[in-house]
């Protein structure tokens, strides 16, 4: 629940993100920040807009976000951020004397958070979402981070808020749901909705891609893309679709660094598989299959369809249950998993 007190700055509020910007209300910065925040963007994106505009345009600002993937406060100039932890202890953050800005994490047990910039006059009014002229924004986060602490872990050693430079510490995690999904290294962010079984789905899906349940109406959120399923090889192994996959007689992928595709070597009796034969590519929520210019071609058999030869180098949508044949006896099937 969020409230604001009218004043001389501009408050932008949506989806557990609160900005208080010391700019003229008509400024283009306000419109762009609103577009970003409304779209579920993180504070890095907001910061880039402000930095791009220059500090002469946005002298003081306070940005706060409190969601599973980002619990963070950024402030500059005369802006002040206050917070109250679960223990009831208040804390104030200021950026006095800091040339750039103050950027710090938020503990996940914050109960109340306020942002102030310039004068604030009058009574506090409610504001769930939108843009108003304000001097102060107050967010009350009674239900934080999905509720009960993880019983697995005593909290005694977790420092959360403190300066933590020399000892390795673990980040305060968000909701217990965080552990529900496997996120690949450097997985791109996607907009998602969740089914009642917590499977992630594309924003506009009608039924869950994993379990088929109807998706309840909800606001989409931004998450690292979950694995989109598995490839079941003709030899029985499963390859997780947490990154692209190149299959062939001897694919070379390691030169491309940590974001490179899996490389799967397939051999068969006929020896008719090309070195880099076919790639399964992840594009947003889509799974595509591309023949990489193989000598003998690639055939796709979608459920209920007759076999189709792939046109070389042209990505085609791969539907769940499809079998992709590289050569005699060498094939894989794409399956959706949770």
């Amino acid at each position: 629940m969020t409230g604001y007190v009218p004043g001389g700055a501009v408050a932008v509020v949506a989806d557990r993100t609160w900005l208080l910007l010391g700019v003229a209300p008509g400024s283009d910065v306000v419109r762009r920040c609103w577009e970003l925040v409304r779209g579920g963007a993180g504070l890095d994106d907001v910061l880039s807009v402000i930095v791009h505009e220059g500090f002469r345009a946005v002298g003081s600002f306070a940005l706060a976000r409190h969601v599973a993937e980002e619990r963070r406060v950024v402030l500059r100039g005369a802006a002040v951020v206050g917070l109250v932890g679960a223990d009831g202890v208040p804390l104030e953050l200021r950026a006095d004397g800091v040339a750039t800005w103050v950027d710090t994490g938020l503990p996940d047990d914050v109960v109340e958070l306020w942002l102030a910039a310039g004068e604030a006059r009058g009574a506090e009014l409610p504001l769930e979402r939108g843009v108003v002229v304000a001097g102060r924004v107050v967010a009350r986060l009674a239900v934080v981070g999905g509720g009960v602490p993880d019983q697995d872990q005593p909290d005694a050693d977790e420092t959360g808020w403190s300066e933590r430079v020399d000892e390795t510490v673990v980040r305060h995690s968000g909701s217990p749901d965080d552990t529900r999904h496997v996120f690949a290294a450097g997985a791109p962010k996607v907009r998602a909705v969740a089914c009642p079984a917590r499977h992630l789905n594309p924003e506009h899906a009608i039924a869950c891609r994993v379990c088929g349940q109807a998706l309840p109406p909800q606001e989409a959120f931004v998450v690292p893309r979950p694995p989109l399923g598995v490839l079941r090889l003709s030899t029985g192994e499963l390859i997780t679709l947490d990154r692209n996959v190149v299959l062939g007689r001897d694919p070379r992928v390691t030169d491309r660094g940590a974001d490179a595709p899996h490389g799967i070597r397939l051999a068969n009796q006929g020896n008719d598989i090309s070195r880099n034969h076919v790639e399964v590519r992840l594009d947003g929520w889509d799974v595509l299959v591309v023949d990489l210019g193989s000598k003998n071609g690639t055939t796709v058999i979608a459920p209920g369809w007759s076999p189709q030869e792939l046109a070389k180098l042209i990505p085609a949508i791969l539907t769940p249950g499809s079998r992709v044949v590289l050569g005699d006896g060498a094939f894989f099937t794409y399956e959706v998993t949770g």
Binding site: G105, D150, D152, Q153, E158, E163, R164, V165, D166, E167, T168, V169, V170, R171, H172, S173, D178, T179, V182, F183, A184, A185, I239, T240, D242, R243, D250, P251, R252, V253, T254, A258, A260, H262, G263, I264, R265
Partner: peptide, 27 residues
Amino acid sequence: SRYRNVITRALGVRVPSEPDQWVFPPV
């Protein structure tokens, strides 16, 4: 950075523990 030692995944603690994996042929 002061964020250098703040790790977001590990075994045994209250953060996700899922490993990244990458499979490729030896050269």
